[in-house]
Design a protein around this nucleic acid. Structure first.
Length: 226
DNA sequence: CGTATTTGACCGGCGC
DNA sequence: GCGCCGGTCAAATACG
């Protein structure tokens, strides 16, 4: 975990009092606009998160924020806001939304190992169970015209599915970087189609693509996680 | 022509 | 065991 992420945590980025466990939310200041092609013209409103991987969400938030702020600062040098000040929290019960599926997938379910299973079968089951539990996963709820938010990484779509009780299809993306198994799902909220829910799964083993283009120091590459 | 996206098929988990 | 459902694969198609 980077020290800045820890700082963000200490500042109370992740608040859970009004949410079930594993849930937290925050809001960008109303005047923060994300740069094109982000299309995130409103506020990033909420996320749910696997508690053990809060730093991941913090780092992604950092990425999104820095992407938004650096782009803004390139255009206008007057710094209305910057860095940690962006994270002024706004609390609103209106931000609450159900995210049972994510919580369910986060390993809250007990996975029993049957006594009669063979050793290999048990191993398989354990590996699968462990994988399911360990994959850090969290989601952002964003008001946006476009489905895919520019988080600095390059994604390839590998599937689309209409899920039950929703009128909007869910899209599945994988990070295009070799050896990086990070995935994300993007869908629109049934109740409010203006809201996009982006769910990230896994950790990047590399820095964002535009950082690579900027020839970032190799030592930073290995340490970067969101 | 290489790469990205689309989309129907397939698979595994889960509840009944 | 069966059916439902979410997630993934991969062939076909679109696009630059």
């Amino acid at each position: 975990m980077s020290s800045s992420s820890q700082a963000m945590l200490n500042q109370g980025l992740f608040e859970e009092q009004e949410m079930p466990t594993q849930m937290g939310f925050f809001a960008f200041p109303a005047n923060l606009s994300c740069p094109a092609p982000l299309g995130c013209h409103q506020s990033l409103k909420a996320f749910s998160i696997e508690s053990a991987d809060a730093p991941s969400a913090a780092n992604l938030t950092e990425t999104l924020l820095s992407s938004a702020t650096t782009a803004k600062h390139r255009d206008d040098s007057a710094s209305d806001f910057g860095g940690p000040q962006l994270l002024s929290l706004q609390r609103s019960s209106a931000n609450f939304w159900a995210w049972g599926e994510v919580n369910e997938c986060l390993g809250s379910k007990k996975i029993g190992v049957d006594d009669h299973l063979g050793v290999s079968a048990m191993k398989m089951k354990r590996i699968k169970a462990r994988r399911k539990v360990r994959e850090p996963r969290f989601c952002f709820k964003t008001m946006s015209d476009v489905d895919v938010l520019d988080d600095g990484y390059k994604w390839r779509k590998y599937g689309q599915k209409v899920v039950k009780n929703t009128q909007h299809p869910r899209s599945y993306y994988r990070c295009t970087q070799d050896n990086c198994r990070v995935k994300k799902r993007v869908e629109r909220l049934a109740e409010d189609p203006r809201m996009v829910i982006t769910t990230y799964e896994g950790r990047h083993v590399h820095s964002p693509s535009h950082d690579l283009e900027d020839s970032q120091a190799p030592s930073q590459l290995n340490n970067f996680f969101w």
